[in-house]
Design a protein around this nucleic acid. Structure first.
Lengths: 232, 232
DNA sequence: CGTGGGGTTGATACAGTTCAAGATACGTGG
DNA sequence: CCACGTATCTTGAACTGTATCAACCCCACG
């Protein structure tokens, strides 16, 4: 593992303030692995043996049921997943697959739980991480229950623009089918939702989106800090 | 506060293993209050000043947006709510109102955070509580995204029967409008969903439900432990 | 070139909401 | 104790939102 990557992991909120010893112990027990695109890393209903940290690439968290399948979230570098299952020593509620060739740090669940018991700073960081994650899912649930598909898309675009966009330009950097599943709709419906947004200040050319009239899109989307702001 | 109630709070997973001193400090700083039915205890977007524990009665957690409103969860004795907001010293993402005359223990947020810093056992309990809560919301999200309204109702009935029911009899112990909001549908739709279930082994008389042919209902509901089991 | 996967578009069906009216239950005051 | 008024629940009809199925387009890749 390159020192640069180690530093980036160390900078994660989860590890930032832990003792050097804790961090080194965790790292020594871990595996850094490369995976090709499209590989299923973990499967729901299987035990959570490792805490996963995405160093490079992108991972899709998804769940199946009733013959249907839906995406719960996307994890980008540097982000961790299935922390809750690891802590509870329980089975995964979600599956995970790589969306791109990815580099994943796998920390044994036992090590995580031991480190937590030994290092109060680590436990404290875990509390913060869990509380944030909890609130994120509550926001997702509100998003799903209170909005139509087109509204979810509009707000997703506005958030992308704020976080990553430049001058009203947003690129959809995942397959549209994946975005559709994340937004809780079918790919067909996403196409139509994008078409709808053309009447609300948005220009669409493939995966390149341009928000020409931000205020009109905002009027349609009704963004709500209690759903759309990450840092609340 | 009656000793009996104190003991019941002490028995909560959140407090079970904390030091006596921690528990007493928290209690001394707290208020125990009675509220009439229908009172809004906390409002979303307002700061989370107290951790709330339902001693008696019932509380509905809900959220508004887009002119719509939806129920996130119901809290019964003995259960705590808005822990995550309290820990992050942030605003509430949900509002709370009493569904019945209720008795609520209000623990100042500052006290909770201080106690957490001082008592590792308390922090450890908080980690468990947050991890469980996180997984509960993920299940709710899957429930919402992977199932139709009638399926959610069917699975809700099956769970009620398992937890509280006797011999296939289930009583809907909240207003149906509230249940509808919890299940993510309109009251009209809940009526129709109940009517639908009559074709799948269920008898309905007002709020009294009877599951006559459990296997038929199960065949319709497709229950999934990764969504419907509380203890996973 | 063909071939295949992702994406779009159209037609149709289903799920869910809305609005309106009627039925039922329930608390209150006479 | 009954009658009334009110809120909840149910039912019906029309409408919106979403899914499904099928055809077609487009581009990347062998």
């Amino acid at each position: 593992m390159r020192q640069e990557d180690i530093d980036r992991v160390r900078a994660l909120r989860l590890f930032r303030d832990v003792a050097d010893e804790t961090f080194e112990t965790l790292l020594r027990a871990s595996f850094l692995q490369r995976f090709p695109r499209g590989l299923t890393l973990i499967r729901e209903s299987e035990p959570a043996d490792f805490l996963h940290v995405v160093i490079e690439g992108a991972v899709e968290m998804f769940a199946a049921g009733n013959g249907r399948e839906t995406t719960i979230s996307l994890v980008h570098p540097i982000g961790a997943f299935i922390l809750a299952a690891v802590l509870k020593d329980q089975v995964n509620l979600q599956s995970a697959r790589t969306l791109e060739p990815s580099q994943i740090l796998m920390i044994p669940a036992v090590s995580v739980r031991q480190a937590m018991e030994r290092d109060p700073a680590f436990m404290s960081a875990i509390v913060a991480e869990l509380a944030t994650g909890y609130r994120t899912v509550v926001k997702d649930l509100k998003n799903q229950k209170l909005r139509t598909g087109a509204e979810r898309l509009a707000n997703w675009l506005l958030r992308q623009e704020k976080e990553r966009g430049a001058g009203g330009k947003v690129e959809i950097d995942v397959e549209k089918r994946t975005l559709a599943a994340l937004l809780g709709m079918t790919p067909e419906n996403l196409s139509r939702a994008l078409a709808t947004l053309k009447q609300h200040g948005v220009a669409v050319r493939g995966a390149q989106i341009e928000i020409n009239e931000r205020d009109r899109l905002v009027r349609f989307a009704h963004p709500d800090p209690l759903i759309d702001d990450y840092d609340i």
